[in-house]
């Protein structure tokens, strides 16, 4: 019975335990969709490996086949086989039921965090130079307007950030403003959450639209301050001298 089949089961179980229980000890838990993806990949890897040659295929599929067809099975094995035939459809049924049963949970969301900006905002560049003065001005505006949510350390952990879903962006993360051009930030600050297109789920974001409070000049400067404070640089198509 032992051999490839047993090994595969151990590998799959091991990876599941690692992703589900061990990894969350060090970081946030993984969503179920991701765990499923990784397990599916592991499973295909095992299939590929054990079907590489005739012998390994036999030792992998043979026991399964013999078990299912009942070939030469007696006693406990036979009872187990009948049990599997009874339990498996029930499992599928239960799975289907839980999938379709009404529940209070909102459906899994997949909000596009950085949707495409409208045409009017594409290709704008910051008209203000990056120097000590603009950085200080920008940081000043940031401190009075943005830091309550986005945090004094530009890490999205301001005192007012708690409770927002989605949480305020963490600028220090290399996956946020470092991936974006300055014109993109200009759009997001100016038009706020309600200015997002539908895939960005404008009803979810709590970002205010700042166009009424801040002039364009201030928005451009706060962008300079933000990038400097978060130790990131904007995406550009030309190298800085």
């Amino acid at each position: 019975m032992k051999g490839p089949l047993f090994n595969s089961a151990v590998v799959l179980a091991g990876i599941y335990v690692f992703l589900k229980f061990i990894l969350p000890l060090f970081t946030a838990p993984l969503p179920a969709s991701l765990i499923f993806l990784y397990l599916a990949l592991t499973f295909s890897a095992l299939m590929i490996f054990y079907t590489m040659s005739g012998e390994s295929l036999e030792s992998f599929m043979g026991p399964v086949q013999r078990f299912l067809t009942g070939e030469g099975q007696t006693g406990v094995a036979n009872i187990a086989r009948v049990l599997v035939f009874i339990v498996f459809p029930l499992l599928v049924g239960w799975q289907t039921y839980t999938k379709l049963a009404p529940s209070d949970d909102p459906p899994p969301e997949s909000r596009t965090i950085h949707p495409a900006p409208p045409g009017e905002f594409v290709g704008l560049a910051n008209p203000y130079p990056k120097n000590n003065q603009t950085i200080q001005e920008g940081k000043g505006i940031y401190a009075s307007n943005c830091s309550p949510c986005h945090g004094e350390n530009f890490d999205g952990k301001g005192i007012a950030a708690v409770g927002f879903n989605p949480p305020p962006a963490n600028f220090a993360d290399s996956g946020t403003i470092a991936q974006l051009q300055e014109s993109y930030l200009f759009w997001r600050i100016k038009k706020g959450g309600v200015g997002l297109p539908i895939e960005g789920m404008p009803w979810k974001s709590a970002m205010p639209r700042w166009e009424n409070e801040l002039s364009d000049e201030k928005i451009w400067k706060v962008i300079i301050g933000e990038f400097d404070g978060a130790h990131q640089s904007p995406r550009t198509w030309e190298e800085e001298e």
């Binding site: 838990p29 969503p31 179920a32 969709s33 949970d105 909102p106 596009t112 965090i113 879903n165």
Partner: peptide
């Protein structure tokens, strides 16, 4: 951006892991 239920998203602090 991951597909996550509300609870999972809260634990991760957004849809970014």
């Amino acid at each position: 951006s991951l597909v996550a239920s509300l609870q999972e998203a809260r634990q991760m602090g957004g849809t970014h892991h």
